[in-house]
């Protein structure tokens, strides 16, 4: 697998992500500047966490205008796999690649803690390494992770099986306990918890490896389209 990790001014989990994919999962990975305009040659694209452009207007609101974003939209439209984590998730919703939006946590406080999650759908390209209903623990670290979508959108998400991870103990007020979800096609995943922070026993756990293992499996001998079809 050859992965691109996007780096916006203010991204701060970009090198953590390249470490997890490169050093730990042993894949080909490259940082790609938000100023770049092409994603040719990559099998998947990761939008990492951080505070892109300071996140002063709304999280992800400025990042969606970065030069790389039209290439990212084309990449996703062509069925390429896109993973957005934390600020990456916020950017993907702002850019319209995922439904809904992320509001302030109901406590109005930033929360950093290990958080139990339930795998709600283990048939997506991002979750086959887990089993359905499995409880895993991943760290969260965000102030604006409270997922909101209107009732009709939520009903669609549930009907299509787009919810991939749910909080076992909702820390932020997210509707339907949503911690991570895909687009309807299943090739774009956004999640607030940080899988790249849970890939080494030394640092407290390896429950996050499944996300990367799933992607690697989805990529093996299967063009993106085939992999996404297995989801439906």
């Amino acid at each position: 697998m050859k992965a691109a990790v996007l780096s916006f001014p203010g991204s701060n989990c970009d090198t953590d992500m390249t470490w997890a994919i490169g050093e730990v999962a042993g894949q080909d990975v490259q940082l790609v500047s938000a100023q770049a305009t092409s994603l040719a040659g990559f099998d998947c694209v990761v939008v990492p966490g951080g505070f892109s452009y300071g996140d002063y207007l709304r999280s992800g609101a400025i990042a969606k205008f970065a030069p790389i974003m039209s290439a990212l939209k084309d990449f996703a439209a062509a069925g390429g796999f896109v993973l957005g984590v934390c600020n990456g998730f916020q950017i993907l919703t702002e850019a319209g690649l995922l439904p809904g939006t992320l509001q302030w946590n109901t406590s109005l406080q930033f929360i950093c803690q290990p958080t139990p999650l339930i795998v709600a759908n283990a048939r997506t390209a991002f979750s086959t390494a887990y089993s359905e209903g499995q409880q895993i623990t991943l760290p969260i670290a965000h102030g604006e992770g409270n997922y909101y979508a209107d009732d009709a959108t939520l009903a669609d998400l549930e009907k299509n099986g787009q919810v991939v991870f749910r909080y076992a103990e909702n820390p932020n007020g997210s509707r339907n306990d949503i911690a991570g979800l895909t687009n309807a096609r299943g090739n774009v995943l956004g999640m607030m918890p940080h899988p790249e922070r849970a890939v080494e026993t030394l640092l407290g756990g390896t429950d996050g490896l499944g996300v990367f293992d799933s992607l690697i499996n989805a990529m093996k001998g299967a063009p993106a389209d085939v992999a996404t079809r297995t989801f439906a």
């Binding site: 953590d16 930033f110 950093c112 940080h194 030394l202």
Partner: peptide
Amino acid sequence: RRYDAQVQTNTVLGPGADAAVVR
């Protein structure tokens, strides 16, 4: 818990222990 204790993914022991340990 209002502080990100893990970014840079080197934190072996975060807040709450006698001392923090960073790889």
